[in-house]
C-alpha cells in the first residue's frame, strides 16, 4: 500500500443524485466498504445504497418518553401525596386524573429532547472540523453538488487505484482529501 499516512480519502464530485447513486453501487460492487456520500438534501436512495437501515434513534426516543412519563407522575405524586398533602376540594391526594396533562407534557418534552440530542450524539455533532472540509469545492455540498468519498481506512484502499476507479464513474472532478 503506497497510501500516504495523512490522507482521509479520495473524493469525487457529481452534479446530480443519479450519477452519485450509480457510483456508490459500482463502488460497493468493486468491494469498497468504507465510504460516505455528501448531499445537499436527504436522498433516500443514497442512504439505502450505503446500507443505512434502521437506527437506534426510535429506541432512544421511546426510552426518553417513558422516562418523561415516569418523572412527570413521580413529581406530582411525591409533591401532592407525600411531601405536601393538601386537601383541595376533597380530591384524593393522588389525583390520578388531574395528573394526566402534566404526565403527557413531560412525556412529549423528554421524548423530543431525546430525539434531538440523540440525533446529534449519534451523528457526532457538534463537530466543528472534519477532514472532509479540506476537499476542494466541498462548500458546494450544501448547495448543489453531490460527493462520494472512499476513505483511507478501507481495507482495499489504494489512492491511485481509487482515483482511477472514481474517474470512470462520470464525476465532475476527483481529488484527494488530506486528513
Amino acid at each position: 500500500m503506497s497510501t500516504p499516512a495523512r490522507l482521509h480519502g479520495v473524493i469525487a464530485e457529481f452534479t446530480n443524485p443519479t450519477d452519485l447513486l450509480r457510483a456508490i453501487e459500482e463502488a460497493r460492487a468493486a468491494g469498497y466498504q468504507r465510504m460516505d456520500a455528501y448531499t445537499p438534501y436527504p436522498v433516500e436512495e443514497v442512504s439505502e445504497a450505503l446500507g443505512h437501515h434502521g437506527s437506534a434513534l426510535p429506541g432512544i426516543v421511546l426510552v426518553g418518553g417513558i422516562l418523561g412519563a415516569i418523572s412527570g407522575f413521580a413529581l406530582q405524586y411525591w409533591t401532592s401525596a407525600i411531601d405536601y398533602p393538601l386537601n383541595v376540594g376533597g380530591r384524593p391526594y393522588n389525583s390520578l386524573v388531574s395528573f394526566i396533562p402534566v404526565v403527557f407534557e413531560c412525556t412529549i418534552l423528554f421524548a423530543a429532547l431525546s430525539a434531538v440530542l440523540g440525533m446529534l450524539a449519534l451523528n457526532g455533532l457538534p463537530m466543528p472540523h472534519h477532514p472532509i472540509f479540506n476537499a476542494p469545492r466541498f462548500a458546494l455540498a450544501s448547495s448543489d453538488r453531490f460527493f462520494l468519498c472512499i476513505e483511507a481506512t478501507d481495507p482495499r484502499f489504494d489512492a491511485d487505484e481509487v482515483r482511477r476507479f472514481l474517474e470512470r464513474q462520470a464525476p465532475r472532478a476527483v481529488s484527494e482529501v488530506d486528513a
Binding site: 442512504s47 457538534p126 450544501s142
Partner: peptide, 15 residues
C-alpha cells in the same frame, strides 16, 4: 454544528 450533509447523518436526521 459542523453539518456536512453526510448520508448517514441525513438518514438519522430524517428519522
Amino acid at each position: 454544528m459542523g453539518w456536512r450533509g453526510s448520508a448517514s447523518h441525513w438518514h438519522r436526521y430524517e428519522t
